[in-house]
Structures are given as structure tokens and as C-alpha cells.
Design a protein around this nucleic acid. Structure first.
Lengths: 149, 149
DNA sequence: ACTAAATAGTGCGATATCGAACTATATTGG
DNA sequence: CCAATATAGTTCGATATCGCACTATTTAGT
């Protein structure tokens, strides 16, 4: 592949990397001290798609190693934002459920983030962001599949 | 802001986050053991834009805290991929220069990555990726500016 | 010139991430 | 039904990231 074609993909991943970093930093500045996007994301996922997921399902959903999810969940449990219940279908496993405190934490975080997103929406119209999503999703799905092979 | 508008931006950052994670993992699997994208990126930056940059300039270019860059550079130096020379213009500072080994490392990494990108190019045409870049750059610039305020 | 404020870089501590090896339970093949 | 294999989750160790506080030097204000 000629260098200038390589450059397109390099540039893409570079932009994505910087956006991820800046977005994460901005978000975490609005979260309670010591909490990270990884914590919020798990709570948000459980609210949106329903709790009772297993740690492995969560690790798979976020594409992180299961040891990382173990660590994240331990942190959430110690803050009383999630709890564990035995998995009735599998004695090796367990299910992650939200506590009321966990649901509130997520609500508050979204509230704290809203002004930030509103400011962004004023600069970057929603349509412009929406227009990116199909291609981003396609790339994400491709990378996800390529990972297995 | 209505929830469904919030969702657009949430989804965007979510996709970006997963792509960053998957892209990084795929890339790092092709790098020599123990080396990360952060190491490669610094070498690549120095090759493309010229070496002799200061640590702070690099930290700023990658939008990482300066302590992180100190750490990354120490790692690169210990592997003899970069060296430090005094900054003639500022006694507090220093300049990062590439070693031959550093240049070779970067060349080899790009070579090792090429097949991966080629496979990706077969699935996601270059034009489709290129079409994303203007909006991504706009968002990156916005986030970068918003950071200062 | 001199003091005060700003800036470049580092050291340290806390936490996150992640791979390898391990334990316990489930599943599969004979 | 039992042995072999696979899977869920954890523990442990290594390294990355990053905020805070610190030192050294430079720049700015008077």
C-alpha cells in the first residue's frame, strides 16, 4: 500500500485517539473525585440494557480483558453502586445488579455532563455528529470481527 | 437538551472509545513485546515533524499530562530509541532527538502494521475513512479549545 | 537589577490496565 | 459416569497514566 493511503488510516486512528482522550478528560472532570469513565460506562450500560449481566458479558460489551472488568466492578461494589448475586444458571458465575445509589450516581453524572454536551452541541451540530455514526459503527464492527481472526 | 439529542453525543463518544481501544490492541499486538502505541506515536511524530522537540511540546501535541510524557520518554531512552540534548534556548528544558535505532524501530513497526491496515482497507475503503476526517478534526479542535476554557 | 510570578521537567503515590497463572465449576466424549 | 477439556472469575505482578508537590530556570514588573 502506498504511503499516502496508509496515512489516511493512521490519521484516522490518531484523530480518534485524541478525541477519546480529550472527551474522557472532560467527562472525568465532571465526575465525583476518583471516578472514571469506565465506572460510569458500566452503570450506564446496566441502566440502559438492564442489569443482571455477568462480568464476562460486560467485559465483552466494552471490549476489555476480564481482569479489567473484575477490577472495575470491585471498585463499583466498594462504592456500593452495584451488588453481586449468584448466577442461578451457572455456579462459576455471578450477576451484577444496580443499587439505588448506582442508579442515582448515573443520573447525577448525566446531569453534570449535560452543560458540557450542550456547549459542544452549539459548536458541532447534532446532525454533523449523527452523520459520522454509520461509518464509525462499520469500522467498530470490522475491528471487532478482525479481533477474533 | 432532550435525552435523544444527548444520546447522539453519547453514542459518538462511545463508538470513538471502542474504536480507539480495538485499534490500539490490534496495533500493540504487532509491536515488539512491551511497547505500546504511546511509544510508537512519539517516534512517529519525531520522524514526521522533525526531532529536537521538547518534552512539553510532545505532551502538548498528544494532549497528555507532562508527567506521562516524562515517563514515556524515559522508556524510549532506556531502549535507546531517543536521546536527550540540552536546549540551547532554555536551561530548564531539553530536546528529544531520535537515534538510528529509534528510526528503525518506527520503520519496522509501520512495516509490521501494513498487513493489518491492508486488510482493513479491503473492508473499509479509504474514501469512506477520508470522508470522516474533516468532522473528526473539527471535533478534536473544538474539544482542544474547550479544554482551555 | 531585584523580586515575584510563570514555566520546564521530575519524583512520588494512587489507581488503572492487562497478561499469565490459578481455582472452581460446567460441559463433553467415551 | 468419569476423565478430559472448556469456561467464569480472581489473584498477582508489571507497567501506564496522571495529579500533586517540588526544584531549577526564565520572564515580567517595578
Amino acid at each position: 500500500m502506498p504511503d499516502r493511503n496508509l496515512l489516511t488510516y493512521f490519521t484516522f486512528f490518531n484523530e480518534v485517539g485524541i478525541i477519546e482522550q480529550l472527551g474522557r478528560a472532560a467527562f472525568e472532570a465532571r465526575l465525583p473525585d476518583g471516578f472514571l469513565v469506565s465506572h460510569f460506562s458500566v452503570l450506564n450500560h446496566l441502566v440502559r440494557l438492564g442489569d443482571g449481566k455477568t462480568p464476562l458479558e460486560l467485559a465483552s460489551a466494552f471490549q476489555v480483558p476480564k481482569t479489567t472488568m473484575t477490577h472495575t466492578l470491585a471498585r463499583l461494589q466498594s462504592a456500593d453502586l452495584v451488588a453481586f448475586v449468584p448466577n442461578p444458571k451457572d455456579g462459576r458465575s455471578k450477576c451484577v445488579v444496580l443499587t439505588d445509589k448506582g442508579r442515582n450516581f448515573r443520573e447525577d453524572a448525566i446531569g453534570a455532563l449535560a452543560p458540557e454536551l450542550q456547549a459542544m452541541a452549539d459548536a458541532i451540530p447534532k446532525d454533523r455528529v449523527e452523520a459520522l455514526l454509520p461509518a464509525l459503527q462499520e469500522i467498530r464492527v470490522y475491528l471487532d470481527r478482525a479481533r477474533d481472526t
